[in-house]
Design a protein around this nucleic acid. Sequence first.
DNA 1: CCCCCCCC
Length: 494
Amino acid sequence: MPVNLTPNAIAAINGGDVNSKPLVQVLDIKLIGSTQERYRLLISDSAASQHAMLATQLNDRVKTGAVKKGSVVQLIDYICSTVQNRKIIVVLNMETILLDCEIIGNPKMFTESESTAQKPMPNANLGNPMRVNNFSTPNSGNYSTPTSNSGAFRAPNSSTFNTSNSGTFGGQNPSTFNTSNSGTYRAPNPSTFKAPNVGNDGQSFRPTVQPPYQPPPNYRNHGPILKNEAAARIIPIAALNPYQGRWAIKARVTAKGDLRRYNNARGDGKVFSFDLLDSDGGEIRVTCFNAVVDRFYDTIEVGKVYLISKGSLKPARKDFNHLKNEWEIFLETTSTVDLCPEEDGSIPRQQFSFRPISDIENAENNSIFDVIGIVMSVNPSVPIMRKNGMETQRRILNLKDKSGRSIEVTLWGEFCNKEGQKLQEMVDVGIFPVLAVKAGKVNDFSGKSIGTISSSQLFINPEFPEAHDLQEWFDRGGKNASVSISREFTAGVF
DNA sequence: CCCCCCCC
């Protein structure tokens, strides 16, 4: 991951700076000290390097592997002092931003002569002029077009798409739409399509590490701020780990699970989870229990962007969590969740990895798929009594794609009354809408079908290139030919 | 700390 170390940081610290919280890289770590165990680091700002003593309370960071050779760290509390006529940096507190990183730049050992010539350290981490951000388009919350829409969708302006190898930018450029080879692409925010085509010049990528999180104005200036409560830097979700002290992430909610109550040997309680995606494509599940549910459940809305900090990281249980992250965040009462009211076009609404329906034929039971197809028929919602005695809604529809296969899609719960209802109304008047299913779960009861789970999302007539291709295929005759891979062909109105 | 994702 690309990182910009703070330019001139070493010289600035030698010149007395104690406030800049620079990003530096750890080039080396040595255990020293005779009476007390102590670590000496060699730190670099990519141009200059210098030795630094680690405060002993941070020894565990080295021992647990939370910081190692190559790590990019943010110095939080530090001071340059002279020991035996040599200047040395003492690191009192720091955060690991990236655990592993190639050596950045070609740092040379810092010398005093440079210190006299030191320039003020630019506050490079407090803002990035390259950053393309903050489209003012309101947050629409979903891609769905209104029911009254004829089913036609507006093809996005092709000039805002980058169908070549845009991997260099990692999808960070909000105007970039990476549809290269893997079949994975990141659905841009709708506002992206209306944005001017800026930043494709190769100059506009921004470092992965983002500016420090500033608390909302109404929480500022409420008495003195303790030094260790200074704003945590926003880091990529992909860089989160349990050994990190303070962190903040800025991410969009891509899915929100229902509030569930449980009763087990440990007692009873309530729980809900939601899924996050950030501008670097990192994803992670967040879970809240009991009092924390009360605190955050109503705040969290799908499609909105939040600044989140002070949660704890636990290993993700892969059997219950399909997100690409080995960790899961548990929020606590001290955690903060702050809505970012301004739309951030750099964070996609979803990342898709569409697979042809024909692939599901041989897919493992319970595997998770993203599919996109044309809705051929929609059955009415029916109440289903669950084995635990709770009633829920079920609605089955039939989805067909260019692979020439169709499949039953089972909507559960609220999906029946929201998207399901809308889809039924469209099909009832002869419109065959495009439906994208994010994170559907494969079921193999008598043939294959796919069902919604709490992480699922449905998009009706989305403005994706795939949707456009599908519609064309459909109009050219795809409408009339397909083979179902589900147990019964849901004979519909076509 | 949950862990349900449902039905035939």
